[in-house]
Amino acid sequence: MAAITASTTNYLWSMQDILGHGATASVYKARHKRSGELVAVKVFNVVSYNRPHEVQMREFEMLRKLNHNNIIRLHAVEDLPSKQKVLVMEYCPGGSLLSVLEDPENAFGLDEAEFLTVLQCVGQ
């Protein structure tokens, strides 16, 4: 079966390379078409467009302004051919904090040193 791909002007991804999904969007591993840089692309679903357009744009602007080591960086907001907006973000190969906590080896929690590191990062 051939992989289904999607793209914006600068990024390309396979719909099979899903990193996660939530109530309003799915996130895919993608590559910059020229440089090959790995990124994460957040593609919004129909439910997300029930929010007023101004609210979405304000959220995009806020994400652009955030600059912290513990927060995934927003690189760009691009359009699919359908004019649907996608967020192009920093790729985090380690996954989310939730994926770390759900790892079977952490079924009984993190050891104290790891827990303190996570707590310090969340607190920042």
Rank of each mutant, 00 (worst) to 15 (best):
A2C: 12
A3F: 11
A3C: 09
A6S: 07
S7R: 11
S7G: 09
T9K: 13
Y11W: 11
L12K: 06
W13E: 05
W13R: 01
S14K: 00
M15E: 10
D17V: 13
G20Q: 03
G20Y: 00
G20T: 04
H21Q: 11
K29L: 09
K29I: 02
R34I: 12
G36S: 11
E37G: 15
A40P: 10
A40W: 01
F44T: 01
N45R: 08
V46I: 02
V46C: 05
V47P: 01
S48P: 03
N50C: 09
R51G: 06
H53D: 14
Q56Y: 10
Q56T: 12
Q56N: 07
F60Q: 14
F60T: 09
R64T: 11
R64M: 10
K65F: 15
K65W: 15
L66T: 04
N67F: 03
N67S: 06
N69H: 09
N70L: 15
N70V: 13
L74Q: 00
H75W: 10
V77M: 02
V77H: 03
D79N: 13
L80R: 05
P81A: 04
K83R: 13
K85I: 07
V86R: 02
V86Y: 00
L87Y: 01
E90M: 01
E90W: 02
Y91C: 06
Y91A: 06
P93W: 04
S96A: 15
L97R: 14
L101Y: 03
E102D: 15
P104S: 03
E105G: 04
A107I: 14
F108Q: 12
G109Q: 03
E112T: 15
E114H: 11
T117P: 08
V118M: 06
L119E: 13
G123Q: 06
Q124Y: 12
